[in-house]
Design a protein around this nucleic acid. Structure first.
Lengths: 142, 142
DNA sequence: TATTGTTATACTCTATAACTATA
DNA sequence: TATAGTTATAGAGTATAACAATA
């Protein structure tokens, strides 16, 4: 058997965009497994609903930068798992969204798992470096 | 019409993982439009092939962290656009990959567009901050 | 007329399993 | 037996267009 080729890295490593993607992939690689099958996006929705009880589907979609049609299936899933509840709004075109008791419990567990996860990431950073990184990322993303 | 709800941000903003994703999305938002319909992933492949002429599909897949079956369709597209060429290897199970003349030309244009893009991102960072950010990201991702 | 939630549909990117030809 | 490329298939995650109910 011939030895495996060794690849030259090319022009990628110096690019900010590329390195951001690498870091993001590394961070999220084991995320789902650690929070009971909830993807980062799903947990983000639970956090938003928790912080905004009664939020409508459209407003939630806007906050998460998704089309409102995209939210329908996602919310169907979360509702099917008993994590959220839709209640028809005063404006009867709308559904208000709330976490169920089970949803709040799972979110609490997920947040603890995320905290562990963050600590695992930040193992290679000092507290000062972590703050610095957050500040620099804040300058790039709005 | 009732005023739109204002959403509380929830627990997300302090999380490294979340901020990485935000920054990455911001960086790549207008990427595709700026490089003639090539996604970041596609350009990455062209860069790797350019730096490793004759690389096999499986080795490329490994370098890009994709399954080799995933590469087939992607390479079909790039070949269909006349950007790359497959040549049967000495080991006749393998295909070696090369950029075509058109592929090299498009890559050159893409790299110029990316440079502009990087400068646009880095507008809000000093040169020192950019170096710092790359260094910090390097500590997170392998 | 405009908005909300919904459906039908489609596209991108990804993976797994099984096939073939070669080694 | 093992590997490289391929195919069939499926699953996330996303979007656009059109529809009914409601404002």
């Amino acid at each position: 058997m011939a030895p495996k080729q060794i690849l030259a890295p090319g022009a990628l490593p110096g690019l900010l965009g590329y390195r951001l993607r690498l870091a993001q992939q590394a961070v999220f690689r084991d995320f789902a497994a650690s929070v009971h099958g909830l993807s980062p996006g799903r947990v983000g929705l639970l956090i938003l609903i928790d912080a905004n009880p009664g939020v409508t589907q459209s407003r939630l979609a806007e906050a998460a930068r998704r089309d409102r049609s995209t939210m329908v299936g996602v919310l169907d899933q979360l509702e099917g798992r008993g994590l959220i509840e839709r209640r028809r709004g005063e404006d009867r075109r709308t559904n208000g969204l709330w976490l169920t008791r089970a949803g709040r419990a799972l979110l609490a567990r997920a947040l603890r798992a995320i905290a562990v996860h963050e600590r695992r990431i930040a193992t290679r950073l000092s507290a000062a470096e972590r703050r610095q990184l957050l500040a620099l990322l804040g300058k790039i993303a709005a």
